[in-house]
Amino acid sequence: MIILRMAAKRGSLNGMKWRYIVRRLCIAVPTFFGITLIVYIIASFAPGSPLDAFLADPRITAAELARKKTAMGLDRPVAVQYLMWLKAFLGGDFGFSFSTKKPVLDVIIQRMGPTLLLAFSSVVLSVAAAVFLGISAASRINTVRDYAASGLSLFMLSSPNFFVGLVLIYIFSVKLKLLPSNGLYDSAGEKSFGMLLRHMILPVLVLSFQHIGNWTRHMRSSVISTLTEDYIRTARAKGLGRTQTILRHALRNSLTPLLTVIGMSIPEFVGGAVITEQIFSWPGVGSLMVQAISSRDYPVIMGITVFVALLALLSNLVTDILYGQLDPRVRYE
């Protein structure tokens, strides 16, 4: 009872919120280490070894291979290998890439920029498009507008992004020669912001495609159910027009269910951008991940895992906090 009464006061509500955040972060710690453990085990048990790359060299001897194996620590049991990685990681050492010999942290940070740029732009585009399409459909259900928006979202939802990527490249790069299809910049010419933007259009579109379809459907059903609420009728009775009622009264309350869906898919924009980055030769974390996995480069795999796991945990926390911002009835307990 005392806690409830305290929570009713504005000042201590903020206190509750901070305590909630701290508690959530504490819970996130074991989750985080659990993720790294599982990924390490799966990567180790996958067939093949980082040593396979050396076999391409016909002059390499068995003794040389054994020496390298010991030097990389691969002769020890997987559990010991993980603990060694963990010990180094806790000391801030991400290790060196097996294949390029560069420090893992440097490689990832260098790749993080393009990935975050792509992910952020795609999230913004997806939210904007889904909210717009969802509202357009929901505000006039069972009309041509609704069928068009719903049909489009179903089409987008069910188009795999490797296919969409190839189709868009064929249309806009090969046939129309309007947009570039690989990299951050053209190989020639000055690297300007405008050039970067042009290079971003297709990858962002492809990465957003399925999410727009999915989120539009969520937004549509959320707005439809919000519009049946009594307070919508109240807003209309005050003299607000249809559109204004939707924008001022329905929009915010419809966003809460969508927020959960968005929060859960944020990691997909970084970790799941693998295919999109491959198609467009985007120098990001996703394509680095593909290289690392195919060469069994454990330190790089683990480094990327750390960042994606942190991002996933963080976006879940941010989602829950935003939830409370959108809906004042939410209590942090």
Partner: peptide, 22 residues
């Protein structure tokens, strides 16, 4: 729209659901 809320007003049965929670 110019009549609603200005010339004629409406109040409802359940004030909790008739007020916007956010």
């Amino acid at each position: 729209c110019a009549v609603r809320g200005r010339r004629i007003s409406l109040i409802f049965q359940d004030p909790l659901s008739a007020l916007n929670p956010s």
